[in-house]
């Protein structure tokens, strides 16, 4: 018996955001990356277009991070040098983008100055040809000094800068406006705030084609389902005419997955859980797999082996 596939027809699609700028566009990137543009739910190729594959950004910091040795052992030759570290992520591990977290600017973690941070960004830009995501250390007063300096130093490169939050978005939005960068709008697993923040940012005249939503992700076992359902609603909103939820989504997974107990506790503590090395990387990969299905566009990862796994998964999901 022939079965008719029931297809939804949506009126609108997810907006596209272009990251990076080539020489012709005023930057120095060897290529740009476009995310978004989907006209259907994730990977339903029979129903609509998925014109751009999800991409992977590997995380680099401007300090030696206190990450699990399972991750840092892959970078031990470069971990003190963000530029070399970034280059290794691109050349050896196939990162589509670099996510540079300026954690070293934290007053309690080295207190790197805005100028130092801007210098680091320029060095990383010099070391890789891929577009760059740059986020602050999370201390708002400091980030409001650091990020404008970075925006200015990298003017023309069309960075993705973050993060803007509901109560601290003006400084970063202004910097992105003036120096022509994109912005990460972060909300605390709350779709109402996600939408409101996008409105606030676009009311400052930053076009919605330069906004990326960070819905805040929870790792597998730690609230993954909350983020999943928020991302689902964001996507359905984008497909049904809600312009203020039509931006692509970034998932900062590496940090969240690495916080899970399952990614840190040794086999001696939990003999039933199996080897830590395998478990730690799977925690990141499995969390990513779920958010691929929920509609994520940019995945921030740390572990080279999970990068390989997630890339493989994306490749399979993109087959029409």
């Amino acid at each position: 018996m022939p079965v008719d596939l029931i297809k939804e027809r949506y009126t609108t699609k997810v907006g596209e955001v272009v990251l990076g700028a080539t020489k012709a566009e005023g930057g120095t990137r060897s290529q740009t990356i476009t995310v978004g543009g989907d006209s259907t739910l994730p990977f339903l190729h029979f129903e609509g277009e998925v014109p751009n594959r999800p991409v992977i950004a590997m995380e680099v910091q401007n300090m030696v991070p206190e990450w699990s040795p399972e991750v840092t052992k892959n970078f031990k030759d470069v971990i003190g040098d963000p530029a070399a570290w970034a280059a290794k992520c691109v050349k050896e591990y196939g990162a589509d983008l670099i996510y540079l977290k300026l954690n070293g600017a934290d007053p309690e973690r080295g207190n790197a100055s805005p100028e130092d941070c801007a210098e680091t960004v320029k060095k990383v830009l010099g070391a890789v040809g891929v577009p760059l995501i740059v986020v602050g250390c999370g201390v708002e007063e400091k980030d409001n000094e650091v990020l404008p300096a970075v925006a200015e130093a990298a003017a023309g490169e069309n960075l993705l800068l973050g993060v803007a939050k509901q109560d601290n978005y003006k400084t970063l939005t202004a910097a992105c406006m003036v120096h022509k960068h994109c912005i990460i709008a972060q909300s605390p697993i709350d779709i109402n705030i996600a939408k409101q923040l996008n409105i606030l940012i676009s009311e400052m005249n930053l076009p919605i084609s330069r906004i990326v939503i960070d819905p805040s992700v929870g790792a597998l076992g730690y609230g993954i389902e909350y983020t999943y359902s928020i991302m689902e609603r964001i996507r359905i909103g984008a497909l049904t005419g809600d312009k203020m939820l039509s931006m692509p989504v970034i998932c900062a997974i590496g940090y969240e997955a690495a916080r899970a107990k399952e990614a840190n506790a040794g086999i001696d503590q939990f003999p039933g859980w199996g080897e830590l090395a395998e478990r730690a990387l799977l925690w990141e990969a499995m969390t990513s797999a779920a958010f691929l299905q929920a509609g994520g566009h940019i995945f921030v990862l740390r572990h080279p082996r999970s990068v390989a796994l997630v890339k493989q998964s994306i490749g399979q999901l993109m087959i029409k």
């Binding site: 109402n192 939408k195 409105i199 606030l200 809600d242």
Partner: peptide
């Protein structure tokens, strides 16, 4: 039918 946000009237 629409997702709430504080500026929903304006939207």
């Amino acid at each position: 039918k629409d997702i709430y946000c504080d500026s929903y009237l304006k939207v």
